[in-house]
Structure formats: structure tokens, C-alpha cells
């Protein structure tokens, strides 16, 4: 990994004030992301994953620390180019879609803003995007509230694809989907990644998905990066106790998976058997 990373975080820290108190949501986190890779971020709820995503997007400035893109420091005020090159698919798609705009209008707006295609081509590009995420063209004129949770999520993914981005941050992109549609979307994302050389930062609680899509995994706990490793190594041989307890708590469906959990929790039981840290 000697190549210039496409994105790096250097000592990122972010504080929030709530009432009279200050909480440290992200605490001195550093990592590199290589072009074309899929880096998963997993970890406790409230451990700072979405806050890191928001800092990468420039939605919140870091309290301290910096981010760089292609080796250049990202300014607090992002240019349109940055906003085009780094895209976010949000955790709650309903809050990120304009309720008064139809699905087609939202996608069209993304194409307009970033000037993709000619005016004449754009209606067709919208249809093509809907098709790519497996939504029937009849959905085009609906408002977001007339869609199911999973259908909305697919619109959010389509919108990120509409901008020809380089880095896409996906915050729980497939947890609202049934596993059949999920597999289709994951394959689509994987194909797009290879075809367009996209880079993904994939935030999720679903470790079974992580195992099958990520190249590397970053584990967060209490705002800190506690472990960062290649996917295979992390699942077969996690070094951190917390990672071990996460993997061995995943609800599974097959005997091989139960065995994997068993292997990990056995070593865990030897050091006292941790259940839920922070509980």
C-alpha cells in the first residue's frame, strides 16, 4: 500500500455541545483509504461512525485534525467539485429526500446540478438510474412518502450514482432491504466499483454483509478506532476483545456460522466472557 491514498483522515476529533456538557463523538481517529477499495466501518451505536461520515462530506467541520483527498487537504468550505466527487448515501433516506419533490425530480436535480448529460439526455438517464437500482419506472412520479423503506433507500443510492463521484460514503445502505434485493444492490455496487473505479466507505452493523463486500474493516468504539485489519484476518483472528464480542453476537442461520462464532467466543470465554461492553 504505497500508492497515494485517495482519502486520508489525520487525527480527526469532533466535539458536540449538549446543554452545558461537551461530548467527544470522535476521538483522534486516523486512517487511509486506497482508490478502488471498500473500507467498512463497524462498531457500537453512537461510536462516531456517522459523525466521521459527516466530516468526510464537509457537513460538520472537525474540531481538530484534517482530511485529505488525493493528498490535498480538504477545505472546510467544500467546492462544487468536492461535493460532486465525494457522495453520501444517508442512514435515514426519508430525511435526505425532499418530500415535495417526486423521485424523478430529485434524480433530475442531481444531474442538473452536476451538469451530467445534455438536457435532452437527462430524462432517459433518470429512467436508466431507476432501472439500475431495480425500481419500476412507474415509481418515477411518486413522492418519497409513497414508497416503502427499501424503495426509498434505492432512490438514495440512485441519486449518489447520478453524480459521477469517486468516493461514496454509504451509511447503512442495505439494512432496509430484503436479502434478495440486498444481494442485487451489493452486486450492483460491486460492479460499479470495478467499472468506474469507485471507492466505498461502507458503514454498517451487518457483519455478514461486511465479510462479503469489504476489503478492510475499521472497528469503532466510544469514538476511537480500536482495530483496523483486512476482512479475512479480522473475522478469523480478531485481535481486540471488542471485535471478538461483536462477531460472536451476530445472529446467524447456518451451522458453519454457529461454529465460527463458537470458535471466537471460546477464546473469549477463556478471558472471562464479555457480553456487551458499555452495557
Amino acid at each position: 500500500m504505497t500508492a497515494q491514498p485517495i482519502l486520508s483522515a489525520h487525527n480527526l476529533t469532533r466535539d458536540f455541545r449538549v446543554g452545558k456538557r461537551t461530548i467527544r463523538a470522535v476521538d483522534d481517529i486516523s486512517f487511509d483509504v486506497q482508490k478502488g477499495e471498500c473500507l467498512a466501518i463497524v462498531g457500537e451505536s453512537g461510536s462516531g461512525k456517522s459523525t466521521v461520515a459527516n466530516m468526510i462530506l464537509g457537513i460538520h467541520p472537525p474540531t481538530s485534525g484534517t482530511l485529505s483527498f488525493h493528498g490535498e487537504e480538504l477545505p472546510v468550505k467544500r467546492t462544487l467539485l468536492h461535493r460532486e466527487k465525494i457522495q453520501l448515501v444517508q442512514q435515514n433516506p426519508l430525511s435526505s429526500l425532499n418530500p415535495r419533490r417526486s423521485i424523478a425530480a430529485s434524480l433530475r436535480l442531481a444531474l442538473d446540478v452536476h451538469k451530467h448529460g445534455t438536457r435532452g439526455e437527462r430524462p432517459q438517464m433518470v429512467q436508466k438510474l431507476l432501472e439500475e437500482v431495480g425500481l419500476d419506472p412507474s415509481f418515477a412520479n411518486r413522492s418519497p412518502s409513497a414508497l416503502s423503506g427499501g424503495q426509498r433507500q434505492r432512490v438514495a443510492i440512485a441519486r449518489a450514482l447520478a453524480c459521477q463521484s469517486e468516493v461514496v460514503v454509504l451509511d447503512e445502505p442495505t439494512s432496509a432491504l430484503d436479502v434478495l434485493v440486498q444481494a442485487r444492490i451489493l452486486r450492483l455496487l460491486d460492479d460499479l466499483r470495478t467499472m468506474h473505479g469507485l471507492t466505498f466507505i461502507f458503514i454498517t452493523h451487518d457483519l455478514s454483509v461486511v465479510r462479503n463486500i469489504a476489503d478492510r474493516v475499521a472497528v469503532f468504539q466510544y469514538g476511537k478506532l480500536v482495530e483496523l485489519a483486512d476482512t479475512e484476518a479480522l473475522f478469523e483472528n480478531p485481535t481486540e476483545e471488542y471485535t471478538r464480542s461483536l462477531i460472536s453476537a451476530v445472529p446467524v442461520v447456518s451451522t458453519e456460522e454457529v461454529e465460527l462464532r463458537g470458535r471466537l467466543s471460546k477464546t473469549e470465554a477463556a478471558d472471562g466472557g464479555v457480553e456487551s461492553p458499555g452495557a
Binding site: 436479502v179 446467524v252 465460527l260
Partner: peptide, 18 residues
């Protein structure tokens, strides 16, 4: 049957063929 076959596995093996 199709639904159960599409579950990603913690043990790996890639994204299921659909």
C-alpha cells in the same frame, strides 16, 4: 427458498448469486 439462499454468510463465500 430464494430468500433463504440470498442470506450473506458470516463465514464468507461472496455475495450470493441471485
Amino acid at each position: 427458498k430464494a430468500l433463504l439462499a440470498a442470506i450473506p454468510r458470516l463465514t464468507g463465500g461472496g455475495i450470493p448469486e441471485i
